[in-house]
Design a binder for these strands. Structure first.
Length: 576
DNA sequence: GCCGTTTTCGGCCCGACTGTTTTCAGTCG
């Protein structure tokens, strides 16, 4: 439903652009679409309660439209607007360098209302009849169409992290570089990004830009100017470079880190304080009040704010919190003392218990939870009752040897069966230190059925935490229908932990929900879902997501040292 | 269409690059 609202509001904005409506009205719809997309609670519930216009940016008009969508599944205003255009029309906005003005022209003069027609008109040269479209435009449109066919628009954070970091390293070691950082949604730790933004401070911009466009990873140069350049890498992702002076660096870094909504707040705050803020400077209207800004924290301070961690810059209350120095002290990777969701060769992992234990110990962890698949996950070589009991004994033996100086907890990733029951009898589950319960089958239940199914598992005294709550695979598979808000309430009531599955394909539960969960007292466990030793590194992505969800070490159970986590797990098992 | 510590009207961020035309409009971030 959320997705539907987001799409409708967004498409209304596009149509209004075509119609040449007031730019601020268009912005209001785009804004509304983003607000709904990023809102951390149950938007359907809020709509039912008639509380939509309590959200900043959603006024009367948008609220009533969203309510109509929630109640009827459609919006008559939108249907009316849309009736003039075929569905395929909206594809045109996905073509790079084509915006509303050009699309309008193409539509009016050549009746282009789909990508197929657009491609045809570019190829047969007809497009040059329209003023403003030359050969270069036609070629670049054809190229964009081809790219869209071959690549999805977004990339997973985990997939591009290695190349992003290696390009950053390359830029940093250039003798002309004085500072370099990655900005954009990558820096904010978004789960998917559509480009990587680099900011470099130098006195020799031309040389930096030349080095950038000549990197071996580059497949083509999209643009190249005096202060900025864009390239496409061989793996398909776009990289943007901004070159600035040392003085401009903190402003450029801040501006291009965003988010857009955060920037708007920053700029209006600047105006309120008698400044003008842009990507190059903070200019005081009063010449005697010019501030010295050496880094981002100086900038925040100048605006009366404490430093806001990039992960929080989504205009989700961070500005208000920074004004009263009430920002969370975010969890960091070094706070993690152990982790729980990990597989071994006993089910579908690639490394043995001993290898996993050693790798975890090498990372400095004090404890490692082993949770292989349960028997219903036949495809993953799930453990039968006997094999699980055997593993429990092996782990107990292993702990006695104290090998690798790490404590192993005996767990299982237990399937939540279609009716919400668990994959083992209580007599087996009670022998474990903990249990991660996950859905691995029957994904297409209705929202109510799926929600009830998972709640039933949450209510089991043997379930310690819920694994990959929505089952989503980023850019591959949608989350299954589940009412996250109700799940959070059930977890709060039953003292059940929710995991952040740190596998970059999942990053589930979504960061947008964590603030709500935290406020309700639900604890988090950051788990790599490791199927081999290298996967333990996924914890880094999990921490980013936790940071985006405002989580502090005290919200994350695997920040507890060994003695305290042992106590917590025991407590849980004696409640039964 | 939204918003309000100048509050119900009047403002809402703006600079760089490209491709086209020939001084600028459109797009992007």
């Amino acid at each position: 439903m959320r997705e539907k609202i987001v799409t409708i509001l967004n498409q209304i904005a596009l149509i209004l652009e075509i119609k040449g409506e007031n730019a601020f009205k268009i912005r209001a719809y785009k804004n509304g679409s983003e607000i709904i997309e990023n809102y951390g609670e149950d938007i359907v519930q809020i709509a039912h309660d008639g509380k939509l216009n309590e959200l900043k940016g959603i006024g009367k008009a948008l609220a009533s439209k969203i309510e109509e969508i929630v109640k009827t599944g459609k919006l008559s205003y939108f249907d009316e607007l849309k009736s003039e255009f075929p569905d395929s029309f909206f594809e045109l906005f996905e073509i790079a360098n084509l915006g509303p003005k050009k699309i309008k022209k193409l539509y009016e003069e050549l009746q282009i209302d789909s990508i197929d027609k657009l491609e045809e008109c570019c190829k047969n040269g007809e497009i040059s009849k329209v003023s403003g479209f030359g050969k270069k435009s036609a070629d670049s449109i054809i190229e964009s169409i081809l790219f869209r066919k071959n690549n999805s628009k977004f990339f997973r954070l985990g997939n591009i992290a290695p190349i992003a970091e290696s390009i950053l390293e390359f830029l940093r070691q250039l003798p002309q570089t004085s500072q370099a950082k990655i900005a954009g949604s990558y820096r904010r730790g978004k789960e998917t990004v559509h480009d990587i933004d680099f900011i470099v401070a130098t006195k020799l911009p031309n040389e930096i830009i030349n080095e950038f466009t000549n990197m071996p990873e580059v497949s083509d140069v999209i643009s190249k100017g005096k202060t900025k350049s864009s390239v496409r890498l061989k793996n398909g992702i776009q990289c943007d470079l901004r070159v600035v002076s040392n003085t401009e660096f903190p402003f450029a870094l801040n501006y291009f880190t965003g988010s857009k909504a955060h920037n708007v707040r920053m700029r209006s705050l600047a105006i309120k304080n008698g400044y003008n803020l842009n990507e190059y400077a903070l200019i005081s209207k009063d010449k005697n009040n010019q501030k010295t800004i050496n880094d981002e924290s100086d900038l925040y301070e100048a605006l009366g704010l404490s430093f806001i961690h990039p992960a929080l810059r989504e205009d989700q209350g961070e500005i208000e919190a920074a004004e009263i120095s009430d920002l969370p002290k975010l969890v960091k990777i070094e706070n993690l003392k152990g982790t729980f969701h990990n597989h071994t060769t006993d089910s579908d992992g690639k490394n043995s218990l001993d290898e996993m234990a050693k790798a975890a110990s090498d990372l400095g962890l004090q404890y490692l939870g082993i949770s292989d698949h349960s028997k219903s996950s036949v495809q993953a070589n799930g453990l039968s009752d006997e094999r699980l009991i055997k593993q429990i004994k092996e782990i107990s033996q292993y702990n006695k040897t104290n090998k690798n100086d790490i404590k192993i907890f005996s767990g299982v990733e237990c399937d939540i069966l279609k009716d919400g029951s668990l994959d083992y009898e209580d007599s087996i589950l009670s022998q474990l230190d903990y249990c991660v319960a996950s859905v691995h089958s029957s994904f297409s239940l209705t929202e109510d059925e799926m929600t009830q199914r998972v709640i039933k598992a949450i209510e089991s005294p043997y379930v310690t935490m819920i694994g990959h709550l929505t089952g989503r695979l980023l850019l591959l598979r949608k989350p299954y229908d589940i009412n996250v808000s109700k799940i959070i309430d059930a977890c709060a009531k039953n003292d059940t932990i929710i995991e952040i599955n740190a596998n970059p394909r999942r990053l589930d539960m979504d960061w947008r929900w964590w603030k709500t969960a935290k406020d309700k007292g639900v604890k988090c466990s950051i788990n790599p879902d490791a199927h081999k030793i290298e996967h333990l590194q996924f914890l880094h992505f999990g921490v980013k997501i936790a940071q985006k969800g405002w989580l502090e070490p005290s919200d994350v159970v695997n920040c507890l040292p060994l003695d305290e986590i042992t106590k917590l797990l025991k407590q849980k098992s004696t409640e039964q």
